[in-house]
C-alpha cells in the first residue's frame, strides 16, 4: 500500500499539473460513487490554483489591471506550477513573480510589466514586514563622533530600494486609481519610453511611503545597506551632499539599528528577521 508521504507527493504532482490527467493508480485509490475520481480531485485542483492565484492577485493588483484578469490567471497558473510557495505565509509568496514575468513569452510586448511587478512586491514587503522602530538621530548621539566611520547600518525590514528602467511608479499610481475614466486618462498621459527612476519604498511613521531618489541618493543608500561601514560607503559619495542625504535617510526611517565594534546598539529582534 502507498505510504502517506508517497500519496501526498502524488497528490501534489497532480494538483500542480494544470489539468493534466492524474495517474491511474491515484484515481483507482479514490472511492467514486456518483462522481468520477478525476472530478473529485479536480475540486482540489481548482482550490489550489484559485487560492494561490488569489494570493498573487492580492499582491499584484496593478499587474492584473495592466494585463486583465484572464491573462493574469494564465500567467499565475504557469508560475504556480513552476514555483509553488515554500510555506503557509502566503504574503511571502511571489518574490520571483516579477522575474518570471520577464521570461513569460506572452508578456514580452509589455516591457514595463516586470518593473510594475517589482514595485508591487516592494509595496507588499513594506506592508507585511515586521513592525520595527526606526533608528533616529538621537540614538546615534551616544556613539562618539570619532567612531561614526566604523558604523554599519541595519536596513529597516520594510525598506526596498529599486532602480526601475520604466516609469513604473507613474503606471502603478495610475493603475490603482479607483475611477476607471481617470485611470484611463492618467495611463494615456504616460509615455512608457520615459526614463524610470530610483525609488525607496518603506513603511515609516507616515505609513506606506514611496520616495524618488536621485542617482546620488540611491547609490549612497545602496552602499550603506550593503553592509559596508559608513567610511567605505562614503568613498564614492559627494562630501557636499552626503551628510544631508544621510540625515534624510534617518528621518525617513531607512534604518532600524546599527552595528559597531565597540558600541553595539540594541537591535530589535524584528530588525534581524
Amino acid at each position: 500500500m502507498t505510504s502517506l508521504l508517497e500519496l501526498q507527493r502524488a497528490m501534489r504532482a497532480t494538483l500542480l499539473s494544470g489539468g493534466e490527467k492524474s495517474p491511474p493508480e491515484l484515481l483507482a485509490g479514490i472511492i467514486e460513487g456518483a462522481v468520477p475520481a478525476a472530478a473529485r480531485l479536480g475540486v482540489y485542483r481548482n482550490n489550489v490554483l484559485g487560492n494561490l492565484t488569489g494570493a498573487l492577485r492580492l499582491t499584484f493588483p496593478a499587474v492584473e489591471r495592466l494585463v486583465g484578469p484572464a491573462f493574469f490567471a494564465a500567467a499565475a497558473a504557469h508560475f504556480i506550477a513552476a514555483e509553488p510557495p515554500a510555506g503557509a505565509d502566503l504574503y511571502e509568496y511571489g518574490a520571483t513573480f516579477p522575474s518570471f514575468l520577464e521570461t513569460f513569452a506572452p508578456a514580452r510586448a509589455l516591457a514595463w510589466l516586470p518593473d510594475v511587478a517589482r514595485l508591487e512586491w516592494a509595496v507588499n514587503n513594506a506592508l507585511h514586514a515586521p513592525v520595527a522602530p526606526a533608528l533616529d538621530a538621537a540614538a546615534l548621539a551616544v556613539v562618539p563622533e570619532a567612531r561614526h566611520p566604523d558604523l554599519r547600518f541595519v536596513a529597516h525590514p520594510s525598506l526596498s530600494l529599486l532602480h526601475l528602467t520604466y516609469p513604473a511608479r507613474a503606471i502603478w499610481e495610475a493603475l490603482l486609481t479607483a475611477d476607471a475614466q481617470a485611470r484611463e486618462s492618467l495611463l494615456a498621459a504616460i509615455d512608457p519610453a520615459m526614463p524610470g527612476s530610483a525609488l525607496a519604498i518603506l513603511h515609516n511613521s507616515e505609513g506606506l511611503t514611496l520616495l524618488d531618489l536621485s542617482e546620488h541618493a540611491f547609490a549612497l543608500a545602496r552602499a550603506l545597506l550593503s553592509g559596508q561601514i559608513l567610511a567605505e560607503a562614503l568613498v564614492d559619495a559627494s562630501p557636499e551632499t552626503a551628510p544631508a542625504l544621510l540625515g534624510g535617510f534617518l528621518t525617513q526611517g531607512f534604518f532600524c539599528g546599527y552595528r559597531s565594534a565597540d558600541h553595539p546598539s540594541p537591535i530589535a529582534s524584528e530588525c534581524t528577521q
Binding site: 509553488p84 510557495p85 510555506g87 503557509a88
Partner: peptide, 24 residues
C-alpha cells in the same frame, strides 16, 4: 494536510484515515 517537500498547496487536502495517518 497542505504541504509536502516544502511545497505549500494552500488548501485543506484530505487524508486517508488509516493508523499511519492517525500516528502522523
Amino acid at each position: 494536510w497542505g504541504a509536502v517537500d516544502h511545497d505549500f498547496l494552500a488548501d485543506l487536502l484530505p487524508l486517508p484515515l488509516t493508523e499511519e495517518s492517525l500516528a502522523v
